[in-house]
């Protein structure tokens, strides 16, 4: 938790990141930036999915539709916040010459996406029967 607070402080303090360690090869920094952007696109895809569920599945019951849409929107926001946090951690690890941080987040997100996908299949099948 304290680590997280320190990371959040680093989000807003570029100088504090620069103070630590040595500037890595710019290509590593750019690769880290592209990874950050890839996660941001994942977040945007989840958010777009949330809006799409809300708008383009009008036959779903209100609870299902709004629940899935809100879950996708929340997952997107979480993914975006985690993207910037992971970017800061990687940047700092590269400056200090440490190993890059490991994360359970990709596995967690995969599980959530799989659960939502299976739920959608069930919802669509049940919806068609009804």
């Amino acid at each position: 938790m304290i680590d997280f607070v320190r990371n959040v402080r680093l989000w807003f303090a570029p100088a504090a990141v620069r103070d630590e360690g040595e500037t890595p090869d710019y290509r590593f920094s750019l690769a880290n930036e592209r990874t950050f952007l890839a996660w941001l696109r994942t977040a945007l895809a989840l958010i777009g999915g949330g809006f799409a569920v809300d708008q383009f599945l009008p036959d779903l019951r209100w609870g299902w539709r709004v629940g899935l849409a809100l879950a996708l929107l929340a997952a997107g926001a979480l993914c975006a916040l985690r993207a910037v946090n992971h970017w800061v951690r990687c940047e700092r690890a590269m400056r200090r010459g440490e190993d890059l941080p490991v994360s359970r987040f990709p596995a967690l997100l995969s599980l959530v996406v799989a659960v939502v996908a299976v739920t959608m299949v069930v919802v669509v099948l049940v919806g068609w029967e009804g």
């Binding site: 920094s29 930036e33 950050f36």
Partner: peptide, 13 residues
């Protein structure tokens, strides 16, 4: 090029 500054990353997010 210089690396991405955290302010831009935070603004985007």
């Amino acid at each position: 090029p210089a690396g991405l500054v955290p302010r831009y990353a935070v603004a985007a997010v």
